[in-house]
Every structure is written in C-alpha cells, then in structure tokens.
Amino acid sequence: MADTLHLAADPVELTAALVDVPSVSGDEADIADLVERSLREQTSLEVVRSGNAVLARTTLGLPRRVILAGHLDTVPVNDNLPSRLEDGVLHGLGTCDMKGGVAVMLNLAATTDDPRYDLTFVFYDCEEVEAVRNGLGRIERELRQWLDADLAIVCEPSNAAVEAGCQGTMRIELRTSGTRAHTARGWMGVNAIHAVGEALGRLEAYQARTVDIDGCVYREGLQAVKIAGGVAGNVVPDECVLTVNHRFAPDRTPEQAEQHLREVFEGFDFTVTDRSAGALPGLHTEAAQELVRAAGGTPVAKLGWTDVARFAALGMPAVNFGPGDPTLAHTRQENVPVNQIQQCREVLRRFLNHG
C-alpha cells in the first residue's frame, strides 16, 4: 500500500488505488489512515479524525456551505480484488459503491481553488452494516457542527445523474396464531399458515402510489419478503410470521406510513421491526438548483434509502450524485465506467468553482 494518495491525479487512477486498499466494514483503519495522511499533506483544509472517519473543510467565511459525503467501507471481498481496467471500465470491489465517488471527492478537495461555497468533505465508516454502527451517527453525536450546510451531496452511485431525496423504508412482522393438532385430525386444529392467506391476498391486490415531488416521481412498494411457520411435517402450525417491506414516498412520515399499513392490514396484528424516514428532494433551494444546472439533464427520484435521509433530518436538502450503476453494488461483477468518474468530477468542479 502506498504511503499517500496522489489526490490531484486522474480520479480514475485514484479510484483504482482506493479499491486496492481492502476496507470491509469494521476494517477501515488502513484506508482512513491513508486518506487522512494524504489530506493533511496535500491540502490546506482543516482535518479531523473520528474513529475511522476523516473530515476536512474550508473556513473561508463564504455565505453558503456544501457537504460532499462518501463512505470508505465495502461489503466483504468476493473474488473481486485487485482492481483491473478493461475497455474503459474499472472492475473491482467498491469501484461503484463507492470508491469512485470517494476518489472524485478527494480530487476536488485537492484541486478546488476558487470555490463559490465553503466545503466540507466527510469520509465515513461502516455504512454497509447495521445503522447503529454508521459513522455518520457518531459524527453527528461528537462533531455536530461539521454537519451544517446548505446542501449535502452523497456521492453514492447514481449513473452520474442527480437523484434527489430518497424513499423511506419500513419492515413489519405480521403474526397469525392458531391451534396445534395432528394433521391426521387437522379439523381439530387451526392452521396459522392458512390464516395468513388473507394478508397475502391483500398484498397481491395492492396498488402502490406514485408521487411527484419537485418533478421527481417516487414509486412506492409493498412486498412480502419472508414467511416463517410450521412445527413438524405432521403438525398443524399454531404460528406464522409474515415479514413485509414498505418503501414509501418522502411526503409521508414513518408514522403516516405505519398508519397506512394498519389500514391495509386491518384485522391483523403486526409489529414494526425497522423504519427510516425518507428525504424530500429539496430541489427548490438555490444551491440544489445550481447543482442541477451544472449537471444538465433532469433530476430523478432516488428509489431506495440512502444516507441523504440523515442529512435531510438535519435540515438541509440532500441528493445522490456519483459514478456507477447502483444495481451492480454488492455483486462480484461490480464495476464503473471511467467516463462516469470523469463526468462526475467535471460536473462537481463546474458547480463548486467560480466561472
């Protein structure tokens, strides 16, 4: 592993260098050390360390501030290291999720010399695991003032398009109960698995909303994702658990989404096991409009949940904008077209700099 990264180099080369530093969630110390050392040696930014997260910022006294954020960790290695470049495509673990975006951020940290905004760069840990370990949560608790800005850009893969806001998500466990009996005398029992059939029928007939917010169309979803029940091959089951995932548009709060599910599953008992609020696109704000103009094209809704919701909860608009196809994330075939890395760098350079 190199002692430092060449931050002003071609961001494609920088992406490859980052990919070749393994950084599975919980094991980001080496890459965090490398990022911290490179920023301290090659920029004049104020730099702080929080666990295995690295933060850097300008303090120019400008009237507005923009945050660029990206996670340093990856999912476990899947026979996809080291990186390799073939026919204009960089292959390897983390190329799109999201070391291509991190490379763009690092390059901008070193080369943005005439900014229109004060800038904060947040390179954080443990995004790919349970939310309680996410480095942004620790940063919010310990370095809250570093997360104040007029706009947050999370450089997650978005195919180099501005993806505004994000959906909320909720998981519930719907339980049915019955009475055990020998299957030879099944009429003496009550089958809990059969009882869940009505809930499955409602899911089959469910018509999901589509919601237009700031010109971004969010399509909701309600899907059964797991079913568990049964005692033995000759016993009528007395319990069944149906797990359902709801993706809801950001015009609904988690409380409103839960109330909607209680209406859908009226007559059934369920427990909410996980929920996260979505994020409104906030494209009406001046900074967001300036980013959209710099990117060209039309912003689209983020169909999924990302850490933009954490920034939105802090009171600022937030978007996803980064190189790579999000459908390739977490796959052995993960890759990123080099032209998308270069495109994202150029769009953000145009947005951040004067002239």
Rank of each mutant, 00 (worst) to 15 (best):
H6G: 04
A8I: 10
S23N: 09
G26W: 04
A29D: 15
A32F: 09
D33I: 06
R37A: 15
A56C: 07
T58Y: 03
T58F: 08
L60T: 13
L60F: 14
R65K: 15
V75T: 06
L81C: 00
E86R: 12
D97S: 14
L106N: 10
L108P: 03
T112G: 05
R116H: 11
Y117Q: 09
V122M: 05
V122W: 07
C126I: 00
V129M: 01
R138C: 05
D148S: 15
N159D: 09
V162S: 01
G165H: 06
T169N: 11
R175P: 00
T176H: 14
G178A: 05
H182F: 14
G186N: 00
G189F: 02
H194A: 09
A199D: 10
Y206I: 13
G215E: 04
Y218K: 15
A224M: 09
I227H: 04
G229R: 13
G233W: 06
P237W: 13
D238N: 03
R247C: 03
F248Y: 15
D251W: 00
R262G: 00
T271W: 09
G278L: 03
H284R: 04
Q289C: 07
Q289W: 02
G296H: 03
A301V: 07
V308R: 07
A309H: 08
A312P: 01
F321H: 01
H330I: 08
H330M: 01
T331R: 07
T331Y: 02
T331A: 08
R332A: 14
F351A: 12
